[in-house]
Structure formats: structure tokens, C-alpha cells
Nucleic acid binder design. Structure first.
Lengths: 176, 176
DNA sequence: GGATCCATGTAATTCGTTACATGATTTC
DNA sequence: GAAATCATGTAACGAATTACATGGATCC
């Protein structure tokens, strides 16, 4: 599932600007799909080129001008096609967990900071999800939001429950 | 946390070949750290070049020869250094979840297959973790293994509990 | 005055994966 | 007979991030 298909997917729920697409993904599913604007804008340009989306430029005073994109019929077909081809992999690269595996080599204060930072991120994402409107959302979006909540919640709970013993062990490495 | 530091980390627990390192990461923490052998071997060559690891070639009959790497003192310092510099990010790119967000555009059988595949992966990873020896493992490794168990378990439970309603909604898209 | 939000884009670089390449041994 | 395990490496390719670039409006 490349960035192009992801954009088509967001647009399938209604027209949006590149900026909107980024926000949508970030706030709704940021815990599982991280896309930077530097990949979205070129992707949209390509899609426009291929006729998979249409574009309307909107001039704004007191705000930068923007481009509103909308899915075309061909684009909708391409979305179905792109989804069909995706292997559906779930890949994670957690430097966070890697740091914890080697916690014994981290200064205690750094360990604390790593855990606190991660907890703050999790809470931010949970807040985003909780604040979203569920009314009128597709079954897929609800499922995904619930999934994110479940997984993030489990991470947070585990960290809160076990950080103490980890920090104690890390503070006295000679006892290992 | 690049592949090089990851190799140093694995070697901090004892000497190993490139093949061993791959297995160790895959079986122990495959759910959170996915590294292909194509990045491990060049990384080890670099580390050897820089004197961060030492290498002993072992000739085997009935098996391909192998190279056993061990951490040097300089290497251990580099590990601590590498860990200190890591931002500790936890990044996920889940095409699996993306597919589910757009489940309404997937054929029902494909949806079923995506869910089944993911469940099978989760179970395989849980089995790996459960079958590992915990005796003598560092606090960090135990914490990480427990974290993986908690998160994978939560994923599995959520999918099992909610797949039915998702599949029903996807089967009758006109009712959305 | 400084940070954040809005809004779009490009260029360079880093990084990793896929595929290529080989091959004996054991297990089903 | 087919598939998996052990074991190491290279090359080409693709994809994404980081940093560069700009700039008014609003909030604290």
C-alpha cells in the first residue's frame, strides 16, 4: 500500500487538500500509518497527472491558497485495484523497544525519559482517537479506531505496570 | 537505531554469526524489529573494519563455513554511544490496518484472508516468545518479551472479537 | 517577541528490501 | 522428490525521511 493508494483512500471519504490528508492520517491513524507531507504532495501530483483525481485551486485571503482534490471514477477503480494488490503487511520498527532490550546500557535518567516520551506519545494518540466523531464513519474506520485504542491501551498499561521493575534492575546492573 | 547498533546489541549477549543474529532478532522480537540478512552482513563487515567486533572463521563439514563475531571493548563503547544517540522512535507502517480502514472496498473473501493471515502471524510470534527461555535473561529482554506478548495478545483479542461485525458490514455495503 | 497553524513544494540523502547467486544436508 | 535449514554475500532498486524554502495570521 503505497502513499498514492493511501491518498486515494482518504479521498474516497470526501475531497481534501494535501494538508487535510496529512492531518486525517496523522490524527486518525497516526499510530499505524506515518506519512510525511513530502510524500503526499508528489503523490497527489502523480495522481492528477494520471487522471485518478481532479483538482480545484482555492484562493484564500489571510491563508495560503490551497488545492482541493477529489476522487474521479477512474480513481475509485484504481483504489480498489491498489487495495487488492496490497500484501497487507504489518511492519514495525521500534527503536523504543530496542532501547529497552538493552536498558542495562542506558543511564537511568535516559531510561526514564525514553519511557515518559513514549507514554506521552501514546496518550496523545489515544486522545486523538477518543476525540474523533464516530457518527457516520464506515465500519472499517470504526474497526481501525478500536484496534488502535486496544493496542495503544495495552502498550500503555504494560509500560505503567512494569517500568518500575525495569528501572530498578537497570539502576543496579551489578546484580544481573 | 540502525542495523549496526542492533548487531552490537545482540553481540553484547554473546558471540554469534550473522545468521544467528538474524534468527535472534526474528524469533525474539520479530514483531517489533524486522531486519533482513541483506543489511546484517554488510553491517558486520563495517563493524569489523572499524574494530568494533572481532571475527573468527569456523570451518564446518556438512554445513557451510561460518564467521563468529564477538564484541570488542571499543564495540561495547560504541553500543552505549549508539543507544544514547537513538531517538527511540516507535514507528509502524501497517498496510494491514489500512486495508481494514477501507474494508468496504475489499471482496469479502479477501477480507477474510487478510484477517486470517494476520492472526496466523500474530500466533507464530506469540509462540516464538512463549518458547524462549527466560532464565538468565536480562531485565530488558524480559520487559521487551512481555511487552510484545501484551501488544500481540491485545491485537489478537481485538481482531477475534470484532471481525464478525466488520465482515458483516463489508458483506452488505449498501447498508452503510 | 516566539511558537504554532495554515499550505505547498523540491532536492538530497539515507536506508532498507528484493532479487540475484550458491549449495550441501536433513526432514517429511 | 520437495521443502526447509544452515550460511554468506552483492547489486539494483524503491521509498521514505530530512532538510531546504517561503510567509501571513493568530495566539500566548
Amino acid at each position: 500500500l503505497d502513499t498514492r493508494t493511501l491518498c486515494l483512500g482518504v479521498l474516497s471519504a470526501g475531497e481534501a487538500s494535501g494538508y487535510d490528508i496529512k492531518k486525517c492520517l496523522e490524527e486518525g491513524f497516526g499510530a499505524f500509518l506515518d506519512v510525511s507531507h513530502a510524500s503526499i504532495y508528489p503523490a497527489l501530483a502523480m495522481l492528477l497527472d494520471e487522471g485518478l483525481v481532479s483538482c480545484t485551486e482555492v484562493r484564500q485571503s489571510a491563508r495560503p491558497d490551497k488545492k482541493i482534490y477529489a476522487l474521479t471514477d477512474v480513481g475509485r477503480e484504481a483504489l480498489v485495484d491498489g487495495l487488492a494488490k496490497s500484501p497487507g503487511r504489518h511492519r514495525v520498527r521500534s527503536e523504543f523497544l530496542a532501547l529497552l532490550i538493552f536498558a542495562e546500557y542506558l543511564p537511568p535518567e535516559r531510561l526514564r525519559q525514553v519511557l515518559d516520551t513514549r507514554l506521552a506519545e501514546i496518550d496523545a494518540q489515544l486522545r486523538h482517537i477518543a476525540s474523533r466523531e464516530r457518527v457516520g464513519e464506515s465500519a472499517g474506520r470504526c474497526f481501525a479506531a478500536g484496534f488502535a485504542e486496544a493496542v495503544l491501551g495495552a502498550s500503555r498499561d504494560y509500560i505503567l505496570e512494569h517500568r518500575r521493575s525495569l528501572e530498578q534492575a537497570a539502576a543496579s546492573p551489578e546484580l544481573t
